[in-house]
Design a binder for these strands. Structure first.
Ligand SMILES: [Zn+2]
Ligand SMILES: [Zn+2]
Length: 726
DNA sequence: AGCACGCCGACT
DNA sequence: GTCGGCGTGCTC
């Protein structure tokens, strides 16, 4: 018997040993019995010396992927990912596979699509008589240009039958459809900066080279990506294009299809149906698709000819998975580019301070687009409106009211942005001061007027709006603050003739809603948009010329050291919506702290100044990117239990004096959101300037946690490397 | 994580 | 006497 190390979906750090009569190559998908259930597994290593009792080792039941293995570079990526994020390798491997490949069932490989063309003999044949009009149409189509079965089926569903006939006559030939296909020249003429950026990346083709493409909103980053992608794909290489889910819109896909009409493109995101995702994954893995577009999970797609990775909106937090395997796809993209020896382009109008810092140190090469791509498009004018002494009506000052009225009157499109859905963020008792909190979370319940409910935005708790205060019985309950619903209602009252549309998670609950909303806006059937982040990202409305930002100050009070960076990026993004194409835009930001660095940098529309100042502050405090961090978290029904496990580990390590001197430990402290979905959450931060020592310390903590978890059975724990949550 | 095993309270 | 509550421990 030959023994193999297998990756299975079990929460154990070591791999499991199974036997097979012959040596199976690493990367083979197999089915095995685990606890007497048939599950899928991936061969990680063959011909090993078992470290456990031979009697416990069971046989591999059968081999699932005949003739295809998960490639060595993919396995190296997962080994690295599991090690770096301190996550069980078996579970990491399974998280990187689409559902179809996690099942103990064989999956047929996608057949490479054929393209059919009439050969010389075929071309001199008479066309089928016109009375057989479907047959004739097929023939005419093939006469005009080669076509795929898929295309021919749109002419006649029985196309394959006739193709077979004609193939037997030796009139047509079938050939594999090329992954890349011909790429037509772009309709967009790149400006000088764009050309230069594209050229810089292309000179590094075939070698590891990380770039940060810093381009202001509207500077045409996408055209630059497309230009580089076209070049790389024409060399027969594959391109991986990552972007936040919210930006993966039908409009974006439309642009891709227009620019690369003959390129086999595959889309991978969490909304793709499971079966389709497996097919797409395999298409990329077999090199049949030249272009892979997807959200963070697409970083794990095997690509045999990877020639370029693009990460658009690289500052976006959605690249970090905040559960289970807590990977940062942007960072893994850089790792993969190094492994594949290819360029990687991270793009943003407000780069993450981590990436910006790396350009300062020459780790990443900086590419800048400082002009709007369309020379007639102006930057918006951003105004800060100090509301400390101004009367507000539903959170809106007179000046803003007038701005909105004027813009509606002259037929412009306005947007009122606030990052709070619902009617009001809190309900308050005037008599005793009682507020309604979520019983499961440390958060206030949000008033949803239309639904007649108080809802928690962090868990699924909800209750009917109470008629009176449960503390004192008072019936005068006041809705405090503004949510999008309330603003929508108020604006309808203020601007009775205006067509107002609210866009937030509540108004776009169904998949279709967004595209309907989008088209309504594009048909200019809306005067005022009210919405949250959804509205700020991913969609351009060329005729939008007034943006109003309400209640942004809330984020300034956060204890999270990344809050200013986040707010700045968010406000720059919202502001960038105003005045694209050929109309000048105006942005008005209501604030009580106009002197704050975030607002000052925003008004000046100066990312560089902001980043420089913010980095200086981070350096002073020894925060990332000037140090590396990891969070060890524990949760339990009581904060005491959660902190107890962490304290026990801390004491154990202290007694052994095992912690490297250059690793600092903070905590245990409650998380900023201390209670979530019924669990009290505590954490310890490990911080060091030395990555090796940090990781050594994490492993130390991990081993102690594995040892002490038995005596704390009600406490769960996890490790978050390079954490974003605080 | 599941899923068995096992040891005590409240049912027929 | 048994049914089932979940605390404990293992998984190749
Ligand atoms: Zn009260
Ligand atoms: Zn809650």
């Amino acid at each position: 018997m030959i023994y193999h190390q297998l990756a299975l979906n079990v929460p154990l750090y070591p791999l499991l040993t199974y036997a097979y009569p012959t040596t199976l190559p690493a990367g083979t998908r197999v089915a095995v019995r685990f606890r007497n259930r048939l599950v899928a597994a991936i061969v990680w290593e063959s011909d090993i010396q078992p470290e456990i009792d031979l009697s416990k080792i069971r046989p591999i039941e059968n081999i699932l992927s005949d003739g295809w293995q998960l490639p060595a570079d993919w396995r190296a990526l997962l080994s690295f990912t599991a090690r770096y994020y301190h996550y069980p390798l078996g579970q990491a491997v399974m998280a990187a596979l689409p559902k179809g490949l996690r099942q103990p069932k064989a999956v047929p490989l996608p057949k490479q699509e054929h393209i059919y063309s009439l050969n010389a003999l075929g071309r001199i044949q008479p066309a089928p008589p016109a009375r057989y009009h479907k047959q004739n149409a097929l023939w005419q189509r093939l006469l005009a240009a080669p076509a795929t079965l898929h295309q021919l089926k749109t002419i006649h569903t029985q196309a394959s039958q006739y193709l077979k006939q004609w193939q037997q006559q030796n009139w047509i030939e079938a050939s594999h459809i090329p992954a890349c296909g011909s790429i037509p020249t772009s309709l967009h003429q790149l400006n000088q900066q764009q050309q230069q950026a594209s050229a810089e990346v292309q000179t590094k083709c075939g070698q590891f080279a990380p770039f940060l493409l810093y381009g202001i909103t509207g500077s045409g980053k996408t055209e630059v990506y497309f230009d580089i992608m076209a070049n790389i794909m024409q060399q027969g290489k594959q391109v991986l294009f990552l972007l936040p889910e919210i930006n993966l819109t039908p409009q974006l896909m439309q642009r891709v299809r227009q620019r690369f009409p003959h390129t086999v493109t595959t889309v991978l995101h969490s909304q793709t149906a499971a079966g389709q995702r497996t097919t797409n994954y395999l298409q990329a893995a077999l090199g049949q698709a030249a272009l892979v577009i997807g959200t963070r999970l697409a970083i794990f797609t095997p690509m045999p000819n990877l020639g370029l990775i693009v990460v658009d909106e690289e500052h976006d937090y959605s690249f970090k998975q905040e559960s289970e395997l807590r990977y940062q796809a942007r960072d893994l993209a850089v790792w993969r580019a190094r492994q594949a020896a290819c360029p990687v382009v991270l793009g943003s109008a407000t780069p993450s301070l981590e990436s910006w810092y790396k350009t300062r140190h020459g780790d990443y090469q900086l590419l800048q687009l400082s002009e709007r791509a369309h020379s007639n498009a102006q930057l918006p004018q951003i105004h800060l409106l100090d509301i400390r002494r101004l009367p507000l009506d539903n959170g809106i000052s007179d000046i803003i009211k007038q701005k909105l009225q004027t813009n509606v009157a002259r037929g412009g499109l306005s947007m009122v942005y606030l990052n709070r859905r619902g009617f009001a963020p809190a309900l308050f008792c005037d008599a005793c001061g009682h507020t309604f909190g979520c019983p499961n979370c440390s958060a206030k319940l949000v008033l949803h007027q239309h639904a007649g409910q108080l809802r928690c935005h962090h868990c699924d708790f909800h209750q009917p709006i109470p008629p009176s205060c449960p503390e004192c019985g008072n019936q005068d309950l006041t809705a405090v603050g503004q949510g999008t619903q309330r603003i929508e209602e108020y604006l309808q009252h203020l601007l009775p003739s205006a067509r107002i549309l609210r866009v937030d998670r509540d108004s776009t609950a169904h998949r279709q809603d967004w595209s309907e909303i989008y088209h309504t806006i594009m048909r200019k059937e809306v005067d005022v948009l009210v919405g949250t982040q959804m509205l700020a990202k991913g969609h351009d409305f060329p005729h939008l010329n007034l943006v109003v930002v309400l209640n942004a100050d809330n984020s300034l009070y956060s204890a999270d050291f990344r809050a200013p960076e986040r707010l700045f990026a968010e406000l720059m993004q919202v502001s960038g919506r105003a005045g694209r194409a050929d109309c000048t835009g105006e942005v008005w930001v209501q604030t009580r702290q106009p002197e704050h660095k975030v607002y000052q940098a925003l008004a000046a529309q100066n990312y560089v100044t902001f980043a420089t100042a913010e980095l200086a502050e981070r350096q002073e405090l020894g925060m990332p990117p000037f140090s590396y961090m990891a969070a060890i978290r524990a949760d339990a029904h009581t904060m005491h239990e959660a902190q107890q496990l962490l304290r026990q580990v801390q004491q154990g390590i202290e007694q052994q004096h095992a912690l490297p001197a250059n690793v600092n430990v903070f905590g245990p402290v409650p998380m900023l959101m201390a209670r979530l979905a019924g669990y009290e959450r505590a954490q310890v931060f490990l911080e060091s300037k030395n990555r090796r020592d940090l990781h050594h310390s994490i492993s130390l903590w991990q081993n102690w946690l594995l040892h002490l978890e038995k005596s704390n059975p009600h406490t769960r724990w996890l490790i978050d490397v390079d954490p974003l949550e605080m």
